[in-house]
Amino acid sequence: MRILVPIKRVIDYNVKIRVKPDGTGVELANVKMSMNPFDEISVEEALRLKEAGKAEEVVVVSIGPVKAEETLRTALAMGADRAILIETDDALEPLTIAKILKGVADVEQPGLVIVGKQAIDDDSNQTGQMLAALLGAAQATFASKIEIGDGKATVTREVDGGLQTIDVKLPAVVTTDLRLNEPRYASLPNIMKAKKKPLDKKTLADFGVSSTPRLKVMNTEEPSGRKAGVKVASVAELVDNLKISGVL
């Protein structure tokens, strides 16, 4: 079985986000970028399934600028077998990304697609579900445990009421939650080897997908700072203040 893992290059989660002075978006110049944390978990889970003998190959794919090569090589250093880069400098929406990934899946024919449940830059939480719909494949979202059996995957999902375990027929799309695993660190020898591995490079034209956005961002603003709290002398005063603020 082949496992396909889409990964995204995002601003590193340790970096403080800054909005551009003109409000047209987030400042990306001279900012540290890294692999989306949920995608790191996806790569790790794919590698563990391969090491357990449940898969023969792990293929990673990224859609983005040329600099996304660094993110793909991180995945290769972790242990992925092949990497595909679909080059574009445009900001793509989840549906467009899902259509591109469908094109990749049609070629690669993976038995399992493991997708991070969301990216920390836009928090869309849509691509995995859209991809499953386009492929006509089963889906299991917010996975905290994945077990592969005969032609099926048993997935434990994190839901509002606790945990839910479901069986999905392969091929399937699974989106990963934070508690699925702890991603490994790439060793220095593997990092050096990954730098020499060739990447399969493609463009949006190879998939017949347009990058024209369906949505338009009007303005980007930083959230306002939290207001200072106040001390109250009694429960009654607290209730009165909550009523005034509209909470009660």
Rank of each mutant, 00 (worst) to 15 (best):
A80E: 10
N241A: 11
E147M: 11
P37L: 11
N14Y: 02
D123P: 06
L49Q: 07
V239D: 03
S34L: 02
L248Y: 01
I84M: 05
G79R: 08
A233H: 04
L204F: 10
E182K: 15
A68W: 04
L215T: 15
K202P: 02
R18E: 02
D167K: 14
V159N: 13
G149N: 09
K216Y: 02
V217Q: 09
I3P: 04
A55M: 07
I146C: 07
P189H: 08
M130F: 15
D22P: 06
E56Y: 03
S62F: 04
D123S: 12
A29R: 14
E56F: 00
L188C: 06
E69Y: 04
S34F: 01
D81E: 08
P171Q: 12
P110T: 06
R82K: 15
G229L: 03
F142H: 15
E147H: 08
G208A: 07
K193C: 03
S234C: 05
V5G: 00
V66F: 05
E70S: 12
D206L: 07
G53Y: 02
L49K: 06
N219R: 15
A137G: 09
T175D: 05
G128D: 01
I41L: 13
V10F: 03
V31C: 11
K169V: 13
S211L: 03
I166A: 12
V26I: 14
A143Y: 08
Q109L: 09
R226A: 05
I7M: 07
L242H: 08
R157A: 00
Y185G: 00
G136R: 14
V61E: 00
V66C: 03
N14I: 06
K16L: 06
A172D: 09
F142M: 15
E87T: 10
R2T: 12
T71E: 11
V232M: 00
Q109W: 13
V26Q: 01
P223A: 13
R48A: 05
S234A: 11
V168W: 09
Q164W: 01
V174C: 11
A77H: 12
T175L: 06
A172F: 02
E56T: 10
S187A: 14
V159H: 12
L49D: 04
T71A: 15
E237L: 00
K117H: 02
G149R: 14
V61A: 01
A80R: 12
I3C: 02
T74H: 15
R214Q: 05
I11R: 10
K145V: 04
T154F: 00
K169H: 11
P189V: 04
K243L: 07
T88K: 03
L101F: 09
L76W: 07
I63S: 04
D121A: 11
D22W: 08
E222C: 03
D121F: 08
K32W: 00
D160R: 14
G53N: 09
Q129P: 05
D81H: 14
G151A: 03
T175C: 09
A91K: 13
D81R: 13
D160H: 08
I11S: 00
K102A: 10
M218H: 13
P6G: 09
D121I: 13
R184E: 01
A172R: 13
Q118N: 12
N125M: 14
E221F: 02
Q109H: 14
V168P: 10
S224A: 15
S245R: 15
T175I: 11
G116C: 11
